[in-house]
Write a protein that binds this DNA or RNA. Structure first.
Length: 320
DNA sequence: CACTTGACCTGTCCGC
DNA sequence: TGCGGACAGGTCAAGT
């Protein structure tokens, strides 16, 4: 297939953060809930924690999410916890067309398969080819011949089998901060952010113990919305600005979430250009382009060890 | 304890 | 055209 010059960058930017994981969750809730596991094929041992054989015969009962972590509950008090990290994907394939006809799957399966094409770096991008492929790490085979593929080119992601009542004991989940899109996260976010007065606000936003689900993209977006320089010490950020940061992150994620359903459709146009996922971005990967508020050129630097995009006019240096 | 840096990986891009 | 190296980023371990 033809690969435009921007395709590589576009893929890298599609790291699953909260909105992307939520979109995957919704798809899985529709497709795997109610299905019975036949067996689990672990192609990359480091990507599956626990005994895969213990899952045979169990039925998916619900699909939940905590921050960027997926939680798939099964009957019998078991849960499959999953983290996509940077390049993980969950790709469902129905068995409607039969096991020997991988390319002619039924409509529903294909539709959801596309909507699950988050994450990055798949050879064929908007339309995944035959599975398993070389990035497939785990395959959940269902009794009806359907299958759920966990793909992850970089092997950072994982699936872990745990007892449902132990899910909140998973280290990452146990310490996780409030959900930014549920209830009123502000009091808890403020409390937790104030524990890290000495670090940069960007590092604090990326810290899952401060607030759940924010990654590099939405951290940069939130900072732009709130007009805060990413290197500002948390101690120098007012409560009003902290609140604006939380609101900015939420707004950006809500927008992304609302685009999630349509992103797959025109993700890569005929020229292989970037997809709709970037339409909500004000600064991320927009270095060299004008700020949509003031026209100043967006710059890229490094803060908290991460590529960081901001507007030098709207988001002034701390110091003073 | 607070905070920073490196490791984990692989694919892609850039300069030579 | 090919090759080495930088880079991408979520989380954890190890370091200051």
């Amino acid at each position: 297939m033809c690969q435009g010059p921007d395709l590589g960058r576009a893929r890298l930017a599609r790291v699953p953060e909260l909105p992307e994981v939520e979109t995957v969750r919704r798809g899985l809730a529709e497709l795997v809930v109610g299905r019975t596991i036949d067996w689990i094929d672990v192609l990359e041992p480091k990507c599956f924690i626990g005994d895969p054989a213990a899952l045979t015969g169990h039925v998916f009962a619900a699909a939940r999410r905590r921050g960027k972590v997926l939680i798939l509950d099964l009957d019998g008090g078991l849960s499959l916890v999953a983290h996509l990290k940077m390049t993980g994907q969950m790709v469902f394939r129905g068995g409607g067309a039969g096991p020997d006809a991988p390319g002619v799957s039924a409509d529903p399966a294909e539709a959801v398969q596309r909507s699950h094409n988050w994450g990055a770096g798949h050879p064929t991008d908007s339309l995944i080819g035959d599975l398993p492929d070389r990035s497939t790490r785990v395959v959940v085979h269902f009794t009806d011949r359907a299958a759920l593929y966990f793909n992850d080119q970089r092997k950072f992601g994982w699936l872990a089998l745990t007892r449902s009542d132990q899910v909140q004991r998973v280290p990452l989940i146990a310490k996780m901060g409030p959900e930014p899109l549920e209830g009123d996260p502000w009091p808890e976010f403020r409390r937790r952010a104030r524990r890290h007065q000495g670090t940069s606000i960007k590092a604090a936003l990326l810290n899952q113990e401060v607030v759940a689900g924010i990654g590099n993209i939405y951290a940069d977006e939130a900072l732009w919305h709130a007009r805060v320089h990413p290197a500002t010490r948390v101690g120098d950020v007012s409560d009003a600005k902290l609140k604006a940061l939380l609101a900015g992150a939420a707004a950006s994620m809500e927008l992304s979430l609302s685009l999630g359903g349509s992103t797959d459709r025109n993700y890569v146009d005929a020229e292989g250009r970037r997809g709709a996922y970037l339409d909500f971005a004000e600064v991320f990967r927009r270095d060299g382009q004008p700020c949509r508020r003031c026209g100043r050129e967006i710059v890229k630097t490094r803060v908290a060890g991460r590529g960081t995009h901001y507007c030098p006019k709207c988001q002034r240096e701390p110091r003073a």
